[in-house]
């Protein structure tokens, strides 16, 4: 980041040279920016247009704002409820993932004990398991614990399937922390638990935020797991399920305006969160890239 910023500053200072390549580079960059943001913008713009307009001219701008698309999507597709469900599940699963993940990662990164390598490999190897191989047995594991179609079950499964990446990421981070601090704490008579919670965790904050954001995105957008493991009461569906249902529903009711409104309501909050935290996301990726 600092590199980029100083680069921009330098640019403002002196702008000499230039050429064809610059134009060439820029036009590609602009093209992709349009491609990346275009569909998102199109959905947001279209969400203000009534169904008949959308069918006759998909590219048009809203003539007047059709707010009832939003109220239709809100009531008929229950976006609000699904968002709430997702939020509740994520409160539990994100906290759990961060807690369990950092506990395991800390121990694996800072302590030598027999089996350390094995456990580490077991966790990180999980990144390569296709979720689909496990999905059928997992269904019955949850069923037998009475956790199928419950929030607790979904939370536990989200935690379990987020652990590989979280552990992998945090282990490499905890290894970079200076050992002296830990030793000093031990000499002062602090227990390992205290050292972890009161000294190491605060030091690891940037990494925790980064991995937390990745887990948030991953869990918020999880599609496969809830589709199989959370099918009991439709009122308990999480957002991705609700969106898939909305898509099918519009196949029968034919109201694209409401569909776009529903999609907009589902994606704008996440985009807002991202833009607010984009600096952390990028530093997080930097930490991951420059291990």
């Amino acid at each position: 980041m600092s590199n980029t910023r100083s680069g921009e500053a330098a640019e403002r200072r002196a702008d000499t040279g230039g050429g064809v390549l610059n134009v060439f580079a820029h036009s590609f960059l602009v093209l992709w920016a349009v491609l990346a943001a275009g569909p998102v913008l199109w959905v947001v713009v279209s969400s203000f247009r009534p169904h008949t307009d959308l069918v006759s001219d998909p590219f048009g701008l809203p003539t007047d704002l059709a707010w009832d698309n939003f109220s239709n999507a809100w009531t008929s597709a229950d976006i609000g409820r699904y968002t709430l469900n997702s939020a509740i599940v994520l409160c539990g699963s994100l906290t759990g993932t961060m807690l369990l993940g950092s506990m395991a990662a800390y121990v694996l990164a800072r302590f030598t004990f027999p089996g350390n390598r094995t456990v580490h490999l077991l966790f990180t190897g999980g990144m390569m398991f296709p979720v689909f191989l496990a999905i059928v047995p997992l269904f019955f594991v949850l069923d037998n614990f009475g956790l199928l179609n419950t929030r607790q079950g979904l939370i536990l499964v989200y935690i379990a399937y987020s652990l590989p990446f979280t552990v992998f990421f945090l282990v490499s981070f905890f290894r970079t922390l200076p050992g002296a601090v830990q030793e000093a704490a031990t000499l002062d008579g602090a227990s390992h638990t205290r050292t972890f919670f009161q000294i190491m965790m605060p030091m690891a904050r940037p990494a925790l935020i980064s991995v937390g954001i990745f887990n948030f995105l991953g869990q918020w957008n999880q599609f496969v797991l809830p589709r199989v493991l959370n099918v009991g009461d439709p009122d308990d569906a999480v957002l991705p399920q609700g969106l898939a249902a909305l898509m099918v529903q519009q196949g029968y009711e034919g109201d694209w305006g409401a569909l776009y409104a529903g999609v907009s309501m589902a994606m704008l909050p996440v985009l807002a969160v991202y833009v607010a935290f984009q600096r952390q996301v990028q530093t997080g990726l930097t930490a991951g890239a420059v291990r």
Binding site: F139, L148, V231, G232, G251
Partner: peptide, 29 residues
């Protein structure tokens, strides 16, 4: 309960052995 996604909603419940009492098993899904 009403749904358009009969299969993805109910098949797992059938597998689980906890189905509803009456199902209107219709539609593309």
């Amino acid at each position: 309960d009403k749904t358009q996604e009969i299969q993805s909603r109910l098949q797992p419940r059938m597998v689980q052995g906890d189905p509803p009492d009456v199902i209107n098993n219709s539609g593309a899904q």
